[in-house]
């Protein structure tokens, strides 16, 4: 297990950055869960709001993808 300290830092950084994706996962779960609880209260209004659901999920997910991108850049491009 030899290696230089820079590589060590790089891997640690990548791992820390990947935590950001967990945040996005929480966000997406929040969106979906709140949609579901709202949809179960008022099922007739749910069908019209699926587009909004996907837009919200996309926005929440995009930030996680940003952190994934940073992780990739740290891993491969630095």
């Amino acid at each position: 297990m030899e290696g230089n300290i820079g590589e060590l830092g790089q891997y640690i950084g990548v791992g820390l950055t990947a935590i950001g994706m967990g945040g996005a996962a929480i966000g997406v779960g929040n969106v979906a869960g709140n949609f579901l609880s709202g949809a179960l209260r008022n099922p007739s209004a749910a069908a019209g709001q699926t587009a909004t659901l996907f837009i919200g999920m996309a926005f929440a997910e995009a930030l996680g993808i940003f952190s994934f991108l940073v992780a990739l850049l740290l891993m491969f491009a630095v």
């Binding site: 996309a58 926005f59 997910e61 995009a62 993808i65 940003f66 994934f68 991108l69 990739l72």
Partner: peptide
Amino acid sequence: LSLSIRLAGNMIA
């Protein structure tokens, strides 16, 4: 940026 990174990132991941 978000539109392109979202799609590409999802596919890469």
